[in-house]
Nucleic acid binder design. Structure first.
Lengths: 340, 340
DNA sequence: ACGCGCTTGGCAACCGGTTGTCAGATGCAT
DNA sequence: ATGCATCTGACAACCGGTTGCCAAGCGCGT
């Protein structure tokens, strides 16, 4: 039985199995994918030989003939942004559990790279999960017509989405700052193409007006720690006593810059971040930030996508999911200077 | 010309192009992949039609018929470990530049997952880059016989590798600590299956003996910040005044724990990390650590792999590359308590 | 005018599976 | 014994390219 392995060293195919079992290749295919379609005895023989030959189906061939690739593309604007680590891990685990392969693509914060990646993936994947898409509504919508898509942190009617509810957490942050005596507050904006940043600002501006405090907008800034220096300087210059940053990267960068300039946090300036990324808890001072279950967001996105790919009987497919967000208070926020 | 787009909405194939141009499919294939094999005029026609039809070759089919998938697997033990961010970015950029696709796989620090991923990738990729492999020498060697492999931070004779020279940086760190007056030093070890950790310890122990100082080994510890607490406690209990940690994650975790316990860094205890990951510069205090060009390591690994895949005329293929490492001194190391 | 070699394009097999269709075998009722 | 439905497996087409081989067409030297 075991001696036949000596022959060819290349991976076994269904034809090898078929030859050994004395059946047709199609029978082997069915035995493996549609077991009930084949007599239990032949099936047993085939399965035995398959395991003995250490048979591994060729994914390429499978994809070519069946049209299903068993892969899902995950597009992120910047792999090195810690925010995406947990998200990626979430999608990776959930996809693996469902027997899918994850194709991770870094779109380099560019709408063009994003669009071409999608076009590429149209044949190379069964579906796409796109985070913080830089595409226009129309472009995203037309892409979604060609291949199943779930968007994360991008809300376009007609495109299933997982949205992390930072806008509402923004109000929490605002109340937190107000209760500490701050009345001159800045929103440190992210990229203009980021819908998240826009929505957050809208929510913040509305809440600020409601509460009668002065919130101004600074930026835009790139979502990197390096941008934090410029953001910090802008904040200082604007005379505010507290900032709500687009994300933790910028906030941490601001922390560094403020320290360099001898401006104490939180005594002279309070800083609130967003995302609660790796590092937010051990920077100096630890960052008050808006936290949310990022990994879970990834899992939910995968579930929604798989529901689209394999429509179940129970037609109730949710096409929008809101992830809760809460404020995590750490050391970077404190009483307003005047109030002391 | 443009009206034909109205017909089928599915992606164009070479057959569509062939039909329109009145040539055979094989000619189209050659025009696109072996341009010199085809008359310049027919080629021009074909290319024009191809762009007009927005033709995108089907990767699956290409892979199936040619045997080359155009993909490279990149295996990392833990996607959420910041050390790998820059590495992944390095491989991603270099692979994309060479027209390859990156398949990123999280092996969950498990040798079994790693082995099965490799087997899977044997058909799904042209080559594999494996970081910090948990596999045995034999297993890695036999895998390398089946598919081109480049290892990162894993040195097995016969397997091309990019090695980050942390062992030699370890001596620098030791001298740094000695010059600050430390004489009782601990090495906070990583996982037992990590070759890097072993090599680092060997180098450190040798250097310590040479210099006549006492260096003991603590651990092993998992390479996560959470392990830092146990590591910090072990270090305190062992009575050392300085630690060299397996990596920055552990070191940062130690910093947090030491702070909780009211032990000042660096006054009471000095801590040296390794890798200079995201966060090492803004933790509290900023971490003295051994830095190296990680992203470049990823690029080099890709270059070595591609050289294997497409053997050039100049046969001199390097199969081992050593990345330089240097000590970056920040705030987590200082004079030994006794010496003050 | 002939033979030669080079260029250029077509034919067909093949990569490794999937799937529609059909025929032989089997079992059961009539 | 005949008819009919059911089960089982084989055949072959197909997915979308690649590639070895062959032949027609061409220019050129003799």
């Amino acid at each position: 039985m075991a001696m036949k392995a000596a022959g060819t060293d290349r991976p076994a195919t269904i034809h090898d199995i078929a030859a050994i079992c004395g059946v047709a290749a199609s029978t082997v295919s069915r035995a493996l994918s549609t077991p009930e379609r084949v007599n239990i005895r032949t099936r047993a023989r085939i399965e035995a030989v398959a395991t003995e030959l250490n048979y591994i189906p060729n994914i390429q061939a499978k994809a070519l003939s069946s049209g299903r690739t068993g892969a899902v593309g995950v597009l992120v604007p910047d792999i090195t942004n810690p925010f995406y680590f947990d998200l990626i891990r979430g999608t990776q685990l959930q996809l693996k559990a469902a027997g899918y392969t994850q194709l991770l693509v870094d779109t380099e914060e560019s709408d063009e790279v994003e669009a071409s990646s999608m076009e590429q993936l149209r044949k190379g994947a069964d579906g796409i999960i796109v985070t913080a898409s830089r595409l226009s509504d129309e472009a995203l919508l037309s892409a979604a017509a060609k291949i199943p898509i779930v968007a994360i942190n991008r809300d376009v009617p007609g495109v299933p989405a997982v949205v992390i509810d930072t806008p509402s957490a923004t109000s929490q942050a605002l109340d937190h700052l107000i209760s500490l005596g701050h009345s001159r507050i800045a929103y440190v904006a992210g990229p203009v193409t980021s819908q998240s940043s826009t929505l957050r600002w809208d929510a913040l501006a509305a809440a600020a007006e409601e509460r009668g405090v002065d919130v101004r907008r600074l930026g835009p800034f790139a979502p990197k720690t390096q941008s934090g220096a410029a953001a910090a300087d802008a904040a200082v210059h604007s005379g505010v006593t507290a900032c709500i940053a687009f994300n933790d990267l910028i906030a941490i960068g601001m922390l560094q810059r403020l320290r360099e300039r001898g401006i104490r946090v939180p005594e002279d300036m309070s800083v609130v971040g967003c995302d609660d990324i790796f590092g937010a808890d051990f920077c100096n001072p630890p960052l008050t930030t808006m936290a949310s279950p990022i990994e879970q967001a990834g899992r939910v996105a995968v579930s929604m996508l798989l529901a689209q790919l394999n429509p179940r009987g129970g037609g109730g497919t949710r096409n929008r999911s809101l992830m809760p967000t809460h404020l995590t208070v750490r050391g970077s926020t404190g009483m307003a200077p005047r109030a002391c």
